[in-house]
Nucleic acid binder design. Structure first.
Length: 597
RNA sequence: GUACCUGUAGCUCAGUUGGAUAGAGCGUCUGGCUACGGACCAGAAGGUCGGGGGUUCGAACCCCUCCAGGUACGCCA
């Protein structure tokens, strides 16, 4: 725990003199509510380090601390020493120095690194869905958290803009498109292209059914096996070949349709606040990696198998053997990834690369990292696959074929409508001028917070009916606490007739005030934990706790209506600290705030 | 078949160098604004932490085993 209390120094001296062992960190935690105290020293781990009996150690610490000038009361319960601090000392060591508290959020310079994080990675054959929304949200928040912790962060996207699936929507457009464009149809480009991808699939299904009827001998084969037996399958394959040979007509159509999709993605990204320093296109990187394979073959990292394929045999039996170059000399998926990893390394020289990619690719990244390590790159130990879980619906997995995907743009629209309705309902007679902005901010806060408050690796159950909430453990709850503080500060600034009292932290004695101050002091630790563990949920959970503690304080401790001018001033200062931390933490989650809602 | 992930309250989820009586939100039930914003607050009910065994002063957490669900094991991406 990074909370530092002045009495630690005296405690440390006592332990040194008494037991002859220096204890660099005093393990202190928040005192559970069922016990009396602000903070607790757990003597079990301490006793282990000192080789002492935990209960006796607790009793000794208790006796020692009882006379300390910062401490009001202390009691030992079993091996736990519960400490109640004097108000002035508690506040002095937690919130009195706001700048120091916020400065403690960033890691010391020696621990800062340059981190390259890749996320989103959409395909240009269809619009983005809820799964992408989770990826984008987690990617942006993780990048932002790392940045707040002091790291130098580079965000990159790798767009999958080529391949057979892209040709499918192109082919369907050629056949059924009749020259329609986003402008002529009024449809967002990525949605328009997605429609043709669906149209292709429909036609393929039709042809597959006809084929099976026609040739019963083929009926047992899978769709995949029969793909090239169908006319439209063959045509897509042919188009891919033409694309690879730079056929001008195919390339022109590809350029046009991809641009439609990029335009559509830009809108989706803007709504989410997603930005990249660099967007790589697979069409420009998919040929990379072969040189590295050839070089590795010469150095004996890889072998040529009898059938001509280039392979790597891992020492780790669980990884087995992996083909890295086909017998016809072309690349496989992992070959391209080797190439793009090198490219990113050369372009930005990061100390660490992070991929935000679904957990179904855990094995792929294990293999990729093992290959790069076998190739001897010094940075190969600093590669991280941030595997996040799927988003499932109550009806099961999202399947585009069955039309059960939750479309990103539609989801944003629906949530915005709900947020607007809720805002209108609460506003009563006087509608705010910035109703649209409020609806946008509140709905996006609700969605992002819902995705960020759970551990990224957890599989999420998204129930459209139940998941869209603005009450309880939600983004809007945190925004609401923020808005209430802003409201108080506005009123305080406007109330010129009220004389300002002197700041006096010793006046804050209420349990809710103490709790709130201690919570504030925990912020640096929690943000650093979120950064270290690549876990936004640690930060989101903390912000919820902070907002809850503030709500309790707000309820129990009058601020503007405090009896005493000094008390009013000091409570306002505490509220301002909470506001600043909420703003800082929400920004690290890429969630915008509102001064009124 | 093999490997990895998951299993905690009716539901959705927290819970790490193993530490006090396992927490929160939603839902249900009961209260609370002539106090600064009720998107709020206070309280109640709700648990053999998937089952069993082991290690330990102490296990939701570590080990073994079984059960249930998911994912991955391509010269697809």
């Amino acid at each position: 725990m990074t909370m530092k209390f002045a009495f630690f120094a005296d405690l440390s001296d006592f332990l040194q003199s008494q037991y002859g062992v220096s204890v660099p960190e005093i393990p202190v935690e928040l005192c559970p509510p069922q016990f009396t105290g602000d903070i607790t020293v757990n003597c079990f781990p301490l006793a282990k380090a000192l080789r002492r009996n935990p209960m006796e150690l607790a009793a000794a610490l208790c006796a020692q601390l009882a006379s300390h000038s910062d401490i009001e009361a202390v009691s030992a319960v079993k091996a736990f020493v519960n400490i109640t601090l004097r108000p002035a000392a508690l506040m002095r060591d937690t919130v009195a120095d706001r700048d120091a508290l916020l400065a403690a959020v960033a890691l010391p310079a020696v621990e800062r690194r340059r981190v390259l994080i890749e996320f989103s990675a959409p395909n240009t054959n269809k619009p983005q869905h809820l799964g992408h929304v989770r990826n984008n949200t987690v990617g942006m928040a993780t990048a932002s958290i790392l940045e707040r912790a002091g790291h130098d962060v580079v965000r990159v996207n790798l767009v999958n803009d080529r391949g057979i699936h892209i040709c499918k929507s192109m082919l369907a457009y050629q056949r059924f498109g009749a020259g329609v464009t986003p402008a002529s149809s009024g449809k967002k480009g990525d949605h328009l292209v997605g429609d043709f991808y669906v149209a292709y699939d429909k036609e393929l299904r039709k042809q597959l059914a006809a084929l099976r009827l026609d040739k019963p001998a083929l009926a047992d084969k899978t769709d995949e096996e029969l793909f090239l037996e169908t006319e439209i399958g063959m045509a897509a394959q042919e188009m891919l070949r033409a694309w690879e040979q730079n056929d001008p007509a195919v390339r022109a159509l590809w350029e046009t349709m991809n641009q439609w999709v990029f335009d559509g993605f830009a809108v989706t990204y803007r709504r989410m606040g997603v930005e990249f320093e660099r967007t790589y296109l697979e069409s420009q990187t998919y040929m990379l990696g072969k040189d590295i394979i050839r070089d590795g073959l010469e150095r004996g990292v890889f072998k040529k198998r009898d059938d001509g394929a280039v392979i790597i045999e891992f020492d780790d039996p669980s990884l087995g053997t992996k083909v890295v170059l086909r017998s016809d000399g072309t690349s496989v998926y992992v070959t391209q990834d080797i190439g793009t990893t090198m490219l990113k390394q050369n372009d930005f020289q990061p100390d660490q690369q992070i991929w935000v990619v679904g957990d179904e690719q855990i094995r792929h990244f294990k293999v990729l990292f093992a290959i790069l390590k076998a190739l001897g790159y010094s940075w190969a130990d600093q590669l991280t696959h941030m595997a996040y879980g799927m988003v499932n619906l109550p009806s099961g997995k999202m399947k585009s074929r069955e039309g059960t995907v939750v479309d990103a743009d539609e989801l944003f629209d629906e949530m915005e409508t709900l947020a607007r309705d809720a805002t209108v309902e609460k506003a009563g007679d006087d509608l705010p001028e910035n109703l649209d902005e409020r609806a946008r901010v509140i709905s996006m806060a609700a969605l992002k917070f819902m995705l960020l408050k759970v551990n990224p690796k957890t599989t999420i159950m998204f129930d459209p009916q139940a998941s869209i909430k603005f009450e309880g453990d939600t983004g809007p709850y945190v925004l609401y606490a923020y808005a209430r503080i802003c409201s108080m500060l506005r009123k305080a600034a406007a109330a010129s007739d009220v004389t300002a009292g002197a700041l006096d932290w010793a006046l804050l004695k209420e349990p809710a005030e103490r709790m709130l101050a201690l919570r504030c002091a925990l912020y640096p630790e929690l943000l650093q934990k979120a950064a270290r563990d690549l876990d936004s949920s640690a930060l989101a959970g903390y912000l919820l706790d902070l907002a809850k503690d503030f709500s309790g304080f707000y309820r129990n401790c009058p601020v503007l209506n405090a009896d005493d001018a000094s008390l009013r001033t000091t409570r306002l200062a505490l509220s301002e600290t909470v506001r600043v931390i909420l703003a800082d933490g929400l920004r690290a989650l890429t969630i915008n705030t509102l001064e009124s809602m």
